[in-house]
Design a protein around this nucleic acid. Structure first.
Lengths: 251, 251
DNA sequence: CTAACATTAAAACGAACGTTTGAACGAATC
DNA sequence: GATTCGTTCAAACGTTCGTTTTAATGTTAG
């Protein structure tokens, strides 16, 4: 029985341990010996199964981002089908994009908060091979969602939408990374303040709570009035601020 | 002449080079030999002047964060003085906090965008000594601004304000880090889209443009309607959403 | 049974790491 | 002019790094 030839148990144990250690220490500060030691496999096993340390990191992400990309695209497909050619609501787009991700935090089989934290921390790693890898993995999805936002906010300059998508990714990335100045400063978990019940947490609860808090924030930022430009950069056709606010589709 | 005993030229060259290399490669991936080589000083100079690689990183930040902390607190003091005991407007608070930082990006003497990028990238580093260091450096300022926000938004639960401060820090951190999925995906600089004039940039222009774009986004996120809680966590005194929106001081 | 194959194991590789050492240097002090 | 002291220098320290090698295991197919 069990004719799983690709998942050799050793392979999966390495991936699981690497996911956790890369999250805890970062890529550079995590050595192969730490990984193989914690996974209780031979040192050479990583190079045998994956080829190199870089390839291991890529594989750690590929098995999660594969699922994420498919589900993000499916969610968008579903929305666009039911909209029948019309533009989507920004809230729907954000829910599809960020909600799909944050739901991974609630599901241990999808990596849970461990993967989410790893993702948030790795998105800002400067290593060239990492950025190249993410660029390839994200290209299609980002482009699809960008187009959807363009259509959802026809009166907002596309450059502005790109900036705000940028900011939204940042807020999310930092939030899920969870290496937090605030957490250390306050000495408590976010949410353990102001009389809320403390987090006896379970990452599942944390993930859900994060999503509840993050989505309104992102939507508020996306829909914020456009900035006034004090530098006469070029012919400003018209300050689209007010017009865009009025004609913005319901959210 | 020049009785500057502390700034031995070697010291400053090391700090400047380390700031840039830590930004480009991250802490772990930057070796002492890369730093001393680029600074054209002897390998032992770092340990002589700073004691260790960790202490070097701390000093790189200390000379910038010192200025930043002082100016952030002064800006808040000035606002509170002119408000005469009353609450501040959220937009004023954000301008003081984020504006002070972003202005560093326009001033090469304060590190310019090099330091901003370094800061953004280092804030998510998992190394314990880095997080401990930032916690200490930021404690007082974060606390002061948090209190100011509590007073500015008396109808918003304090836990919610902490979450949103968290999200705002994330959006800013990621934005100034500038290791960007979007940038790689689109192949162009943000702002080089949709007919805007391309960035022949000068970091000064980038910093100013970033500030213009980021501030409205943050303000929109901070002022967004409060989330609805579907989990009956505890007695929800009343959904403060609408009430808070009405009574919110002008922005 | 044996040949072929995929996986694991132990050991070693050269390279690079952060740090330390002890001597040499140069300018100021007595 | 000798001495002191802060700084620079070349060289080496011991350790750890990612990777490779070669042999020993099972496991499967002929």
């Amino acid at each position: 029985m069990s004719e799983q030839k690709t998942s050799s148990d050793t392979r999966d144990r390495i991936l699981d341990v690497a996911e956790r250690l890369f999250m805890e220490n970062g890529y550079e500060a995590t050595s192969m010996r730490m990984i193989t030691g914690a996974a209780e496999v031979n040192l050479a096993a990583v190079n045998y199964h994956f080829g190199s340390k870089e390839a291991l990191l890529r594989e750690v992400f590929r098995r999660r981002l594969g699922w994420l990309n498919v589900n993000r695209l499916q969610a968008l497909d579903r929305l666009e089908a039911q909209a029948g050619g019309g533009p989507l609501k920004p809230s729907q787009i954000l829910e599809a994009f960020f909600g799909t991700l944050l739901r991974m935090g609630e599901d241990k089989a999808l990596g849970g908060m461990t993967f989410l934290r790893l993702l948030g921390r790795t998105l800002t790693e400067p290593a060239e091979f990492i950025r190249t890898f993410f660029a390839g993995e994200y290209a299609e999805v980002i482009d699809r969602y960008k187009q959807a936002l363009y259509r959802a906010l026809p009166d907002v300059p596309q450059a502005e939408i790109v900036w705000r998508l940028h900011f939204m990714l940042g807020a999310m990335s930092y939030a899920i990374a969870g290496t937090d100045v605030l957490r250390v400063v306050t000495g408590v978990e976010v949410g353990d303040l102001a009389g809320e019940r403390p987090l006896q947490d379970d990452d599942t609860v944390l993930a859900r709570r994060l999503a509840q808090r993050l989505m309104p924030f992102l939507l508020g930022g996306l829909r914020a009035p456009l900035p006034q430009f004090d530098e006469p950069a070029r012919i400003q056709k018209e300050l689209p601020t007010q017009a865009a606010r009025e004609s913005r589709p319901g959210i």
